[in-house]
Design a protein around this nucleic acid. Structure first.
Ligand SMILES: [Zn+2]
Ligand SMILES: [Zn+2]
Ligand SMILES: [Zn+2]
Ligand SMILES: [Zn+2]
Lengths: 135, 135
DNA sequence: AACAGTATGTAATAATATAACGTTTTAAAG
DNA sequence: CTTTAAAACGTTATATTATTACATACTGTT
């Protein structure tokens, strides 16, 4: 069985939730999402979490683990959720997806001494953004 | 109780919880810890979380963000919670602290294009460990 | 039409984490 | 030895994040 459809079409709930995350300037938490889509008929946590799981799986969004929050992938050529890196400002909480070829190459090629095979990584940098440094 | 160097001495609860994490072969979750120290008089979540927060702060343990679990630092020369990297087996869930000079140098020197100053990073690699690859 | 896979709606509950108190211990200064 | 401030403690309640379980409906393929 070969799957050919490259451009999977999203389901209704998936699209609603992706739209919300996409237009947000900051990472959104699951229950913030829930609150904001209740008027569209998504009323319960499992509906949100199921859509989030799928969107993460297909690489449309990423989870910021240290914040339990979700951002849209800004990086259309980013390998599907396999190699993610973020910069997080500890003052204003701004989150950006880092896309740096050297960085992702270095990490994708990185080999463990213990013979482990890496299929995926997630990297979170913390610090102060340009604006917050000035203050 | 031995403390001969100028290291900060831990409080009673901190020591109990560090001991438990230290002798565990796997990351421990907060409520697993709570359950296991109740016989020692630690009865409520805040007691556990307070000790965990402090232990993370002083670098004795690290939080595995993708698992909401805690491991002891195996790397006595690791910069205090500033530069952490872990390998996580997706099959057996084994977690190891990666200590690789090239990796930590590369990441500590990494500079954002947007002018952000990084003070800290956390990296989590996912894949299959040696044993799980064979199966 | 039959089937398999995916998605949905809903209720209940589990798991993770913090707020808000007041009290006690610790360590350092006077 | 007192005073004092910071850190740690104990306790109750509550907030936040995430999953289980089950019944139903939609999707595309044979
Ligand atoms: Zn991305
Ligand atoms: Zn900032
Ligand atoms: Zn360490
Ligand atoms: Zn394994």
């Amino acid at each position: 069985m070969i799957k050919m459809n490259k451009e999977r079409s999203l389901s209704k709930n998936q699209q609603i939730i992706l739209d919300l995350i996409d237009k947000s300037s900051e990472p959104l938490k699951a229950y913030t999402i829930l609150f904001n889509v209740q008027k569209k008929g998504i009323k319960a946590p499992p509906q949100v979490y199921r859509a989030l799981d799928k969107l993460v799986e297909i690489g449309k969004i990423h989870k910021i683990e240290s914040k339990n929050a979700f951002v849209a992938c800004k990086n259309s050529n980013c390998e599907i959720s396999k190699a993610t890196a973020f910069s997080i400002c500890e003052s204003c909480e701004e989150v950006d997806e880092v896309s740096d070829t050297k960085l992702s190459k270095f990490l994708s090629k990185f080999n463990d001494k213990k013979g482990m095979t890496f299929k995926r990584f997630n990297l979170e940098f913390f610090g102060l953004c340009k604006r917050c440094k000035i203050k």
